[in-house]
Design a binder for these strands. Structure first.
Length: 458
DNA sequence: ATCGGCTCGCGCAA
DNA sequence: TGCGCGAAGCCGAT
């Protein structure tokens, strides 16, 4: 049973007596460990109706790149074949979800629509537009968080220390294993393809060609998209990285100790709850498990909380008051270096460490977590205004990172540039009371010359 | 290597 | 109303 706190009824429509239940898959692109799909199946079994899954691919999503589409489409191909094994039709079409989903709902005589939760502006707008257009009930299920975002808190939290106790208190009840997607008793399987559906195989080549995206940001090969690969990555992490001083080594950008799971989390190829469950039950040292789970659970849920409650999550306006005030005071401070967006993008600053971080991001689609802080703070230092700094950081992060366009990315930039979820520090030029970072810290702590060498900067 | 000072505001105890 | 404390900081003193 899917916990009822995980589900929100998004409109006031009453249930139709017959017709398939449809899951509009959006943020959580996976078949296993997906509370939204499980809830849709639960409804379908209860009303003895077939189950359908819809996906709407937006071929001209603003700013989307070939790199991101490639990762997503390969994941969707795996979803198509996994759903076929379960006799659940998967219907993928191109277009704008707020137009296409209402059409699919009437075309397939859908009796109830289920979707997953997105805290981002576009995702929220799609969902509310659809909920008001269709004449059947629509349910939103938080399939992304362990503790549903609206349950964890009813307001924007100030910091990790304010949300942590709320999550810790109930974590035990939520951090469970998942039931399997198909019923245990084969006699109960009622998911048959409805006669009117006329399901055809998806022409993936045609879809790839129809994408109207930036082809200059190319797909990467070091990471394989999809649910299966995500689970393999998780196993590798738990056995080969986590127990070997993860807590110590995770900040060192020259070491390969990070989980590399964030691209999968972003596209929903794996569930955070699955990761947390497996890590918790692994026999890695407690300190390493705690360090990882703090990032995976508290920090991730805090990022969703910020975006969910603050629509200015990707701009200066979302920063806390003390930070905005302090940054404005220092907006007229003299900048020793200033660069334009293009100069940052091409990695042409005076600082080889910054250029190396930029190169890591543009070539692999994933910058080391610790370097992301230094990278963003230097953008603040080297632009004309904090507004412009945030704009450039978000632009580059969204464009090149495989985990871009995600609450974690927006919060990371806002933490670095705007003091979000942080405290005030000793006042200094440009930064004001925002926590400062410089290259001396990197040199002191790590073999940063090696990092620069790794990314081919001389 | 380690420590204190820097600084703001939330949440809780009183 | 007072107090403790917080994602990764820096810097200078010991």
């Amino acid at each position: 049973m899917v916990a009822k706190e995980r589900v929100r009824h998004m409109n006031t429509r009453s249930v139709k007596p017959s017709g398939p239940v449809a899951y509009w898959m959006s943020r959580d692109q996976r078949v296993g460990d997906n509370w939204a799909l499980l809830f849709a199946q639960e409804l379908a079994l209860k009303s003895q109706q077939p189950l359908l899954v819809f996906f709407v691919l937006t071929p001209n999503f603003p700013g989307a790149t070939w790199r991101a589409y490639d990762f997503m489409i390969k994941g969707l191909q795996e979803i198509e074949s996994r759903l076929r094994e379960l006799d659940v039709p998967f219907i993928l079409i191109l277009g704008d979800p707020s137009v296409e989903i209402p059409l699919l709902v009437s075309e397939h005589y859908v009796s109830a629509l289920v979707t997953d939760m997105s805290p981002l502006k576009m995702g929220k707008k799609w969902r509310s537009d659809i909920a008001s257009q269709i004449n059947v009930p629509m349910f939103e299920v938080d399939a992304h968080n362990i503790f549903p975002v609206w349950e964890a808190s009813s307001k924007q939290e100030f910091g990790a220390y304010t949300i942590r106790p709320k999550i810790q208190k109930v974590l035990k009840t939520y951090l469970t294993n998942f039931p399997p997607i198909s019923p245990q008793d084969p006699a109960k399987i009622v998911h048959v393809i409805p006669a009117h559906a006329g399901i055809q195989n998806i022409n993936w080549d045609e879809i790839e060609l129809s994408l109207n995206c930036n082809r200059s940001v190319k797909p990467v090969t070091w990471i394989t998209p999809g649910e299966k690969a995500a689970h393999q990555m998780l196993r590798d992490f738990i056995h080969k990285k986590l127990p070997y001083d993860y807590a110590e080594g995770r900040n060192d950008p020259t070491q390969d100790v990070l989980s590399n799971l964030s691209p999968y989390l972003h596209f929903g190829h794996i569930s955070a709850q699955r990761i947390a469950y497996e890590v918790q039950h692994s026999d890695a040292p407690q300190t390493d498990k705690e360090a990882f789970l703090e990032e995976l659970i508290i920090r991730r849920e805090l990022a969703d909380n910020y975006c969910f409650y603050n629509p200015e999550y990707d701009s200066f306006d979302g920063f806390p008051e003390w930070a905005k005030k302090s940054l404005i005071v220092h907006a007229t401070d003299v900048r020793e270096y200033t660069y334009l967006k293009e100069e940052f993008e091409e990695g042409k600053t005076h600082d080889p460490i910054w250029n190396a971080a930029q190169k890591e991001m543009t070539s692999t689609g994933k910058m080391h977590g610790y370097m992301r802080m230094y990278w963003a703070k230097k953008i603040l230092e080297w632009t004309k205004s904090p507004q412009e700094a945030m704009e450039i950081a978000v632009y580059l992060n969204d464009k090149y990172e495989l985990d871009g366009r995600d609450p974690n990315g927006y919060v990371g930039c806002a933490w670095s540039i705007g003091g979000l979820h942080d405290r005030a520090w000793f006042e200094r030029p440009i930064f004001g009371k925002i926590r400062y970072m410089n290259a001396n810290g990197l040199k002191r702590k790590f073999d940063i010359a090696k990092y620069v060498q790794m990314w081919g900067i001389s």
